[in-house]
């Protein structure tokens, strides 16, 4: 059950990232690229969560890596939003 949740979150993030990357190629609006990268970060976060909790046992802890991926993703988006505001 929990594994399915992690995978679904990862797939959703990847789908959003792909959709937005395609849109970015068309519109070249930088905020779309940042949003796309944010979803890449979320996807990485969720994939690592799945690997960490479902595939490998409790002896290895990837929590720092997965939390860093999420923070990097959302920071990129926030950076993009602030850049748009000041441009």
């Amino acid at each position: 059950m929990a594994e399915a949740v992690y995978l679904l979150c990862a797939l959703t993030s990847l789908a959003c990232a792909a959709l937005l990357l395609r849109s970015y190629r068309r519109s070249r609006m930088s905020l779309i690229l940042w949003t796309s990268l944010c979803f890449v970060g979320f996807a990485l976060n969720n994939v690592l969560l799945f690997v960490d909790l479902a595939l490998i046992g409790p002896h290895i802890d990837l929590s720092v890596f997965r939390n860093t991926a999420a923070l990097a993703g959302v920071s990129i988006l926030l950076f993009g939003m602030i850049m748009l505001e000041t441009s």
Binding site: L20, Y24, S27
Partner: peptide, 14 residues
């Protein structure tokens, strides 16, 4: 207009 372009980026079809 920028917001419209941004929101439309979530469209699958053009």
């Amino acid at each position: 207009d920028r917001l419209r372009v941004y929101a439309d980026a979530f469209r699958i079809r053009k």
